[in-house]
């Protein structure tokens, strides 16, 4: 059954008519020729299809496009500045040789940008100490309805500093079958330690 929707993809308004069965990933790749997000497993297990959906990292293979009518989608192809300068996270991947075949890379980069925004907003991970143990991590201004953090991640507590354990845990949803993890970690380490988010 056809549905008429509009997606905002990498800054462009993209109206389209599609079958309700089309996932967001297939809409991007096959209907709109936005091929940065990749189809790895198509079952939400590999992270290759990760995009920023209304500012938050999301698996585009596990949502129907029709359910995202009106959404803002940013893929790895939409991250460069207007004059073509790569995003700092893309630059860090290049400088640290954080890829081999490159298939998982667009998903890794979108995921990393989502991760930086989440950490800046104080979102914990499984590697983050509990508040009671953290002694003073609990910053002011938290609570429901607190102002939104960067890129849509809701500010709740003080920013989380991303050490290696944090980065590993927070990037565990993105698999790399070439095993470039060591250099992906290196690429993200500088950003995490300095709290750079963009």
């Amino acid at each position: 059954m056809d549905a008429r929707i509009t997606l905002h993809v990498d800054g462009d308004e993209r109206p389209l008519t599609l079958d309700t069965r089309v996932t967001l990933l297939d809409a991007l790749r096959d209907r709109l020729s936005v091929t940065a997000p990749k189809k790895g497993c198509d079952h939400g297990q590999c992270g290759a299809c990760t995009v920023l959906l209304d500012g938050r990292r999301t698996l585009s293979c596990l949502t129907f496009a029709v359910a995202q009518d009106g959404a803002e989608v940013v893929t790895a192809a939409g991250l460069a500045s207007y004059d073509g300068e790569p995003h700092p996270v893309q630059r860090a991947f290049l400088e640290n040789d954080a890829l081999q075949c490159g298939y998982c890379t667009p998903g890794q980069i979108c995921s990393a940008i989502g991760m930086l925004a989440e950490a800046a907003s104080g979102h914990p991970s499984h590697a983050t100490p509990e508040l009671a143990d953290a002694g003073g991590r609990d910053g002011p201004g938290g609570g429901p309805g607190a102002p939104g953090g960067p890129d849509g991640a809701r500010r709740t507590t003080a920013p989380v500093v991303l050490d290696d354990a944090e980065i590993r845990e927070r990037m565990s949803g993105n698999l790399c079958r070439c095993g470039a993890y060591v250099n992906i970690l290196a690429a993200l380490r500088d950003h995490g330690a300095t709290g750079v988010t963009a």
């Binding site: 939400g44 992270g47 990760t50 990292r57 999301t58 698996l59 596990l62 995921s111 989502g114 991760m115 989440e118 907003s121 104080g122 979102h123 914990p124 991970s125 499984h126 983050t128 509990e130 508040l131 009671a132 609990d138 938290g142 609570g143 429901p144 809701r154 709740t156 507590t157 927070r170 565990s172 949803g173 993105n174």
Partner: peptide, 24 residues
């Protein structure tokens, strides 16, 4: 990430963070 949950019932925050991946 909710401060009330993290403060008053860390078991719930920890369980959520042990599940799935950040994207999910």
């Amino acid at each position: 990430a909710h401060p009330w949950v993290r403060r008053n019932c860390p078991v719930l925050s920890r369980a959520l963070l042990a599940g799935a991946s950040p994207q999910l």
